[in-house]
């Protein structure tokens, strides 16, 4: 059963098409990553799913409900990790999380959540006195405290130290193991590879790729690339079977090819190609 269903989602502002006919679904327990450059429509899409924005057309169901008509009961079943905006601060980590726990019918244990986000040493500190990364962990804790079935994270690690990002990924992995459905947006491809089961790439409001993270862009774009130097010239060839190709190549040259390299395009290369193709008007099949 799908936790989230999006069909033909479109969001138009006066003279700007922010989201254009986007469709995808997210199964229960799955982590779905929406990738895309800045301004591509990631935040608009996730905010429509969170119920913070209205849509122009299309069908959206989150846990079977239309988030545009979000009831309090619906709010109790989803969690939103907000971007720290300086609204918290004077009360301690524990007081703040305890208060938010009291808003939900079925909250997680406050101390467990503090532990999960790695703030047990700072629980009695006013949030204002924490570092930016630590404050963001409070945001994560507040997104989790209601024990949501679906968790939304919009660019959760933007501006993080590498170390803090890794710690954050660990928190998310813990939630994945519990079976939580997670939707996150990011423009970090390593984050998508680390956390995502499935994902989509959105460019200029259009979904240009959708699928398992390891398969995004399709087979063709993931074809291994063999490069070597022959008679002083750099050569590149793409092939489905590099082993066979190199064997034949060696036979033809009569010796081991110089500077031989085999590269499988990683997500970053596939992603950048997708964006370039889209902007050059190349039609892409899922």
């Amino acid at each position: 059963m799908s936790a989230i269903e999006v069909m033909g989602l479109t969001k138009r502002y006066k003279d700007f098409q922010a989201v254009d006919d986007v469709s995808f679904s997210i199964s229960r327990g799955e982590t779905f990553v929406l990738l895309g450059p800045n301004g591509a429509g990631k935040t608009t899409t996730i905010e429509i799913l969170e119920g913070f924005r209205t849509r122009t057309s299309g069908e959206v169901k989150v846990l079977g409900q239309d988030p545009q008509k979000a009831s309090r009961a619906f709010r109790a079943r989803i969690g939103i990790v907000q971007q720290s905006a300086g609204d918290l601060g004077r009360l301690s980590v524990r007081d703040t999380i305890t208060h938010f726990a009291s808003l939900y019918p079925n909250p997680r244990k406050v101390e467990e959540v503090i532990e999960a986000v790695g703030l047990h040493g700072k629980a009695s500190e006013p949030i204002k006195k924490l570092s930016g990364g630590q404050q963001h962990r409070v945001d994560v804790a507040l997104g989790l405290i209601g024990n949501p079935e679906v968790l939304f994270l919009d660019e959760p690690t933007t501006g993080f130290d590498p170390e803090v990002r890794r710690a954050f990924w660990e928190v998310i992995r813990g939630l994945q193991q519990e079976g939580m459905t997670i939707m996150l947006t990011t423009h970090y491809l390593d984050e998508a590879e680390e956390l995502g089961h499935r994902g989509g790439v959105i460019v200029d409001g259009r979904l240009v790729a959708l699928g398992k993270i390891a398969e995004i862009g399709g087979r063709e774009s993931r074809k291994p690339e063999v490069s070597w130097v022959e008679a002083g010239v750099q050569r590149i060839e793409r092939t489905d079977d590099p082993t066979l190709f190199i064997g034949e190549l060696s036979k033809r040259i009569g010796s081991a090819p110089e500077n031989l390299q085999v590269k499988v395009p990683n997500l970053e290369q596939v992603y950048l190609q997708l964006i370039t193709d889209h902007r050059n008007g190349v039609k892409i099949e899922d």
């Binding site: 913070f52 609204d87 938010f100 808003l103």
Partner: peptide
């Protein structure tokens, strides 16, 4: 609270 994210955060929770 309207501008610093407080109301937005609350509106994402089930508070009335």
């Amino acid at each position: 609270e309207k501008h610093d994210g407080t109301l937005r955060r609350l509106s994402g929770s089930p508070i009335s």
